[in-house]
Amino acid sequence: MTTITLNGKSITVTSDPDTPLLWVLRDELGLKGAKYGCGIAQCGACTVHVGGQPVRSCSVQIGDLDGQSVTTIESFDGKHPVQQAWVAAQVPQCGFCQPGQIMSAAALLNENKAPSDDDIDAAMAGNICRCGTYPRIRAAIKAAAKA
C-alpha cells in the first residue's frame, strides 16, 4: 500500500511496491494517458510529473513514491496552455508519444517561461516522436510560452 497525491487528490494504491508507476496508473487506476513505449526510460512516452518534475514512469517504482505528488495528462483536461498550443500548431500525427511530449513541455514551461532552442532541446530530447513532429513541438512550446 502506497499513498500518493494523484492529480491533486490523495489516494492509496495496492500494487506491489516494485511495480513501476506507469503500470499502477494504467493497470490499477485505469489512467491510460501515459503510454508504454520501451520500458527502459528511453522513449519518454510514459512521462508524468512527480513533484513537478518530468519522470519516466516506466522506470520509477511506486514504493519509492510514498507521500509524493504525481500529475498525469488526465489532470490537464484539454485546457492546459501547452495542450491548447498543441492544437493550435496541429502537432500530433499518430499521437502515441504526445501525452509524454506534453508532460515534458509543461514541466519545462513551469520552470522556464521563455525557453531558448537549446533549453527546448535539453528538456525534450528524452521524448522520441517516430512521426517526426519535432518542428511543431518546438513551435508549440514557444507559442505556449508566450500565451
Binding site: G30, K32, Y36, F76, Q90, P92, G95, P99
Partner: peptide, 21 residues
C-alpha cells in the same frame, strides 16, 4: 482544416489499441 483526431490525442484519451479494454 484542423485534424479531426487531434483534440483527443492532445487530451491523452484512451484511443489506442494499447488502451482498449
Amino acid at each position: 482544416t484542423p485534424r479531426v483526431d487531434i483534440p483527443a490525442k492532445v487530451r491523452g484519451e484512451p484511443i489506442f489499441s494499447q488502451d482498449f479494454t
